[in-house]
């Protein structure tokens, strides 16, 4: 999958390209609005990551022009998150926006969502290694052992399992599990994950929930 990143700030452009490339995407970088518009119009991209503040023609202008010929999804990056800015971006046809500074995991999650075609079918049953989650009955077992979880613990495990292999940031987890949509300065998420691990991972030799230091948590089978 090919992604075009339009970003004039060299460091930002570099790490976006690097991070997205390492996540399995083919990434091209344009450093001006004009180049970005030209490359995006040429086609061949599944997604455009567009910075709003660009020299020459800015992000607004780029998307206005781009929307005349193309329906490629656009993810806006902006350092300003005034309400009008968001509304303006979405009105002009942006598919999503992300306010700087953002966690890279957050960007990755948004990119994945935008690239996912069609509605996601929620699995009723998730099997990861010897972990089995029955979503409807809210039942969790490992190696045939029933694991008792509180409702929030179940929600947290379900989230991690549903997005297995994806690193989830603390704020993503707080938002999805507790509906806390701001960055908390507490270690609530860490405590909750630790408690979940005590039930799901500690009694077993195969560990599934992993800490990505500085990024968040991921549930995956590691060799």
């Amino acid at each position: 999958m090919r992604i075009l990143v339009v970003e004039d700030e060299p460091k930002t452009g570099d790490y976006l390209r690097k991070g997205l490339t390492e996540s399995g995407y083919v990434v091209d970088l344009a450093t001006t609005g004009r180049d970005g518009l030209f490359q995006a119009s040429e086609g061949g991209y599944e997604l455009v990551v567009l910075d709003v503040m660009l020299p020459g023609i800015d992000g607004w202008e780029v998307i206005r022009e781009l929307r005349k010929t193309s329906e490629t999804p656009v993810l806006f990056l902006t350092a300003r998150d005034e309400v009008e800015d968001r509304v303006r971006g979405l009105e002009l046809g942006a598919d999503d926006y992300l306010v700087k500074p953002f966690a890279f995991a957050e960007l990755l999650a948004r990119v994945r969502t935008l690239l996912r075609r069609g509605p996601v079918r929620e699995l009723e049953h998730i099997e990861i290694a010897d972990l089995s989650i029955d979503v409807l009955k809210r039942r969790v077992t490992r190696q045939e052992h029933r694991i008792d979880l509180t409702p929030k613990e179940f929600t947290l495990l379900h989230l991690l399992a549903r997005r297995q292999g994806e690193v989830l940031s603390r704020s993503q987890i707080a938002s999805q599990v507790w509906d806390m949509n701001f960055d908390s300065d507490t270690n609530v998420v860490d405590v909750a994950v630790r408690r979940l691990r005590a039930k799901v991972d500690d009694p077993f030799s195969l560990k599934l929930i992993h800490t990505m230091r500085g990024m968040g948590y991921v549930l995956e089978v590691r060799a």
């Binding site: 500074p101 701001f182 960055d183 300065d185 230091r213 500085g214 990024m215």
Partner: peptide, 20 residues
């Protein structure tokens, strides 16, 4: 290096939170 970067990330998160 990883420990350093992770620690840096924590500081950056603190800064980001303050600004926010």
């Amino acid at each position: 290096y990883q420990a350093l970067l992770a620690s840096n990330v924590e500081e950056f998160e603190r800064l980001a939170r303050m600004v926010e």
